[in-house]
Each structure stands twice: as C-alpha cells, then as structure tokens.
Design a protein around this nucleic acid. Structure first.
Lengths: 181, 181
DNA sequence: TTGCTAAGCGGAGACAGTCTCCGTATTGTT
DNA sequence: AACAATACGGAGACTGTCTCCGCTTAGCAA
C-alpha cells in the first residue's frame, strides 16, 4: 500500500468516526470525504459502501472496549465481574450511538472485531459458570442478544427524552434471572 | 374532510403498510405515492414527513395487537399471561420488521397508539403483581424496554442469518429474573 | 538525479430520493 | 349552474450516493 493511500485511509477513518458520532450512522459520505480532504472517489475506493466504512470505524472502537475487560478477567468474584462487564458494554455501545450494536449480535469468527467482543464476553461467562455463579444453560450469545437489546432500548428511549431505567438496572434484572440461587 | 381526500388518505396508508413491510422503513415515499395513484404533493400534504406516515401505519397495527391481549386479561394465571403477552409482543414487532419497536418505548399518553400498548401491558403487569407472581419493584416501562430490546436483537440477528435464540427463550430469561420465588 | 509505471487521486456527473410550489381540477354547497 | 374552498399532482430544486476516467504522484530502477 502506497504511503499516500495509507495516509488517506487513516484520515478517512478518523474523520468518519467523528462524523458518525456527531451525526449518526447516516452522516453524508461525500461530506466525510470533503472533511478528510479527499474526493468522493477516494473514499469509495477504500470503502465500497457505507457499511464498510462503518465497519472500519467499529473495529478501532471494539479493540478499545475489549481492552477494558482485562482487569475484570482476574476479579475475585467472576459473577459480579460479568455483571460489570455487561453494564460497561451497554455504556460503550450507547456512547457510540448504537453504531456498533450489530457487532454484539455477531458470533462470526471471521469478523475479527465482533469476534473479539464475543470471545471476551465468553471468557467472563465461562469464569462465572465455573464458580457456579450463573446458570449453566445460559449461553454467551443469549447474553449478547439481551445486552445489545438493552443498548438499543436505552439509546432510543433516551433519544425520545423519556425517563428511562438505567443500564445498571436492566442488566441487573437480566442477571437476576441468570444467577444461580 | 373531502371525500377524495379521505379516499387518498386511506389508499396511502394501505399502500405504505405494504411497502414498508416489503422494503423496510426506508421505502421510497415517491414510490408509495405513485403506487397509490397520487402525486408526491398529495402524500406530503397528508403526511409532512416519513415519520408521520410511519406513525399512521403503526396506529392500525397497534390496535390489532392490543386486541390480541383481551383473552389474556382473563387468564387464570396472570403471571403466565404476562409471559405470553411479552412473547406475542416480540413476535408482532418482529413480524412488523421493527417498524414499531419505537412504540414500545413510549409512555406518552398523548400518543394514542403507544399508549394503547403501554396501557395494555400495564394491566397485565398489575394483575401479575396482584397475585404476587412478579416482583413489585419492576415497572411496566422496564419490561417494555427489555421487550423492545429483544425484538430488536431477534430481528437483527435473524437478518444476519445467525443461529439465534427464540423470543420465548429470551423472554423466559427475563421472566426468571422478575418472577417471585 | 532522472524517468518510468503502476497505484492512487478526485471531480464531473448520472441517478435516486425528498420535499415544495403553484397552476389546475374536483367537491360540495347555495 | 355557479362558485368558493379544498385538494390534486407534476415540475423541479436540492441533497446524497456512487461511478467513471483523465490526471497526478509515489516509489523504484538505472
């Protein structure tokens, strides 16, 4: 890859992140190109469609989120650690304006980013199961579905200006159904 | 309202329902107008923007869903009735391609449609609480948030072709956290 | 250095969708 | 039958997506 190509690629991802965050996932691509100081042609060569650009943006995001889990993996109480992780996940996805909620639903090993999140979650789930903290019949995918759903719901009811229950509370309800007793 | 105006209004809602179902919430409005045999101007006078048309479509839908709850209100086991209702709600929202998921998040009395759904749910929740079937600290809004989240997650993971847990299962998990014991 | 070439750039423009304006047509009433 | 008031609908301005292709530039080899 030529140096100028790499430069433009980086710049585009950076600008796109900013713009998606500010204007939601429908931000104008031509506008992103302009802000990055390149023509639309350049943007579309690097990222054939909106999805691809969104993906690239999410990749960077997901890595930083997954890094967040490291301390939780060594926590004394794995069940509480799992609880914390799910709350953080909701917070992160919300902060990212739902751009990434699709990633939580993926179990695709080929899609690196999604896999990182799924895998990280799985480790925490397994640790909690190992100490008998949560039911053995609950799968990581199920928790991811519920978590992404909560992110969605929190994001959208907040957007509508409604008084909304906190992510902590909703994750808490889920965990109440999942914890052994 | 003039007779021709009413006719066009009805036709537009009917065609829009069909088109949104077929093409998702981004279906072309000019195309809907054309199919309804009217000009774009007519569509936009009746419905100043996409949101308004979507709303009108959802109104009809929500009424039919709420009607579905009638028998459940008299069920012998209110807790199971609530469980059933939530599952149906997810099914309905999914069948409606998520067009209406926003409605579940609203607690707005002024928005008739959303209110019908919220109110119906509330009755079922209250009945379940009355017999001590579910925790008193759980609110209808919280259940609606979780339910709409599940609809979202099921819809999107299905769309991505992933093996996905059933709505019954996920609602079941929620109910496990909410039931008294 | 210089010159070459593949890789990359970016703008013009085709296309599709949203929404508005306003002259024309239709309705329902007197 | 005539006349308001109401409603219609198409032309077109505007915005955004995405493609095509002539031009530019980086990187390499002599």
């Amino acid at each position: 890859m030529r140096a100028d190509a790499r430069r433009n690629y980086e710049k585009l991802v950076a600008v796109a992140t900013e713009s998606f965050l500010a204007n939601g996932p429908d931000a104008s691509l031509d506008d992103i190109a302009k802000r990055a100081g390149v023509g639309p042609g350049t943007l579309y060569r690097h990222f054939p469609n909106r999805e691809a650009l969104l993906d690239a943006v999410c990749v960077r995001w997901a890595d930083s989120v997954a890094a967040d889990a490291a301390p939780l993996l060594e926590a004394a109480d794995p069940t509480e650690a799992l609880n914390d992780w799910l709350v953080r996940l909701v917070d992160h996805v919300s902060a990212f304006k739902g751009l990434a909620s699709a990633l939580l639903l993926s179990t695709d090993r080929k899609h690196d980013t999604a896999w990182v999140l799924h895998h990280t979650s799985e480790e925490l789930v397994e640790r909690a199961k190992a100490v008998g903290g949560i039911r053995a019949d609950v799968t990581t995918s199920e928790l991811m579905q519920l978590t992404s759903g909560i992110s969605y719901a929190c994001g959208h009811s907040k957007q509508a200006g409604k008084p909304t229950s906190t992510p902590e509370r909703l994750i808490g309800l889920i965990m109440d159904g999942v914890r052994t007793r």
